[in-house]
């Protein structure tokens, strides 16, 4: 967790980089810690980077650069109770933090969590998983304007793009399954029969 801000009066801007808990994704950590990405973070006003490394936790120290360009960089392997707390640290809060960013692998659960909280989102599919439906999800989310899709080599550019673009809001226009279930079970007929 990035330390709570406001101490020295500086407004935080947090980026959470998550690789998922189950598969190894060291390339994402390495790319985000490379000089061009660190520069992109600085250029876009970030103050804190928080890495959720999962299986790749051991490689974090190897990638961590000596020169952090003034960024506060932290890492952890995973949080059993989920990433909610870490994600909330990326939200905009008056006087404490600016709207941050979530960089994640293309896991549907993580993406949904990020979108529910209204975070800017960069989705980097894990190419080593050979699971092309994750890539399809990332692609479609970018087409529909919910997220920025990126590969490892384009991450620095994607960070800038995601911070500039106004992403489509996710919450509020989703259909509910409950009435569909009611119709199948026959509640609509039930109600109609009583009205007749």
């Amino acid at each position: 967790m990035p330390e709570s801000s406001g101490k020295n009066g500086k407004v935080m801007k947090v980026c959470l980089i998550t690789t998922g808990a189950t598969a190894k994704f060291s390339e994402l950590i390495q790319a985000a810690l490379a000089p061009d990405c660190l520069q992109a973070f600085v250029d876009n006003g970030f103050t804190h980077l928080n890495f959720q490394c999962g299986e790749s936790f051991s490689s974090f120290d190897a990638f961590k650069p000596a020169d952090t360009k003034g960024l506060n960089i932290q890492a952890f392997d995973f949080n059993k109770s989920g990433l909610n707390k870490e994600m909330r640290a990326c939200q905009a809060k008056a006087g404490i933090s600016k709207k941050g960013l979530l960089i994640c692998h293309a896991g549907a659960g993580t993406i949904l969590d990020g979108m529910r909280l209204g975070l800017a989102l960069v989705v980097v599919p894990n190419a080593s998983l050979l699971d092309n439906h994750q890539d399809e999800l990332a692609e479609e989310l970018e087409v529909q304007g919910y997220a920025t899709r990126s590969d490892i080599s384009g991450l620095a550019r994607a960070i800038g793009n995601a911070c500039e673009k106004e992403e489509k809001a996710w919450v509020g226009h989703n259909a509910s399954l409950a009435p569909i279930i009611d119709a199948v079970v026959g509640y609509e007929d039930d109600v109609r029969a009583r009205l007749d």
């Binding site: 549907a108 949904l112 439906h133 399809e136 999800l137 692609e139 479609e140 399954l177 569909i180 199948v184």
Partner: peptide, 14 residues
């Protein structure tokens, strides 16, 4: 036992 199947949100093209 009416059956309702909802394909995962992660499934975009297949």
């Amino acid at each position: 036992m009416k059956i309702i199947y909802v394909e995962s949100w992660a499934r975009v093209k297949t």
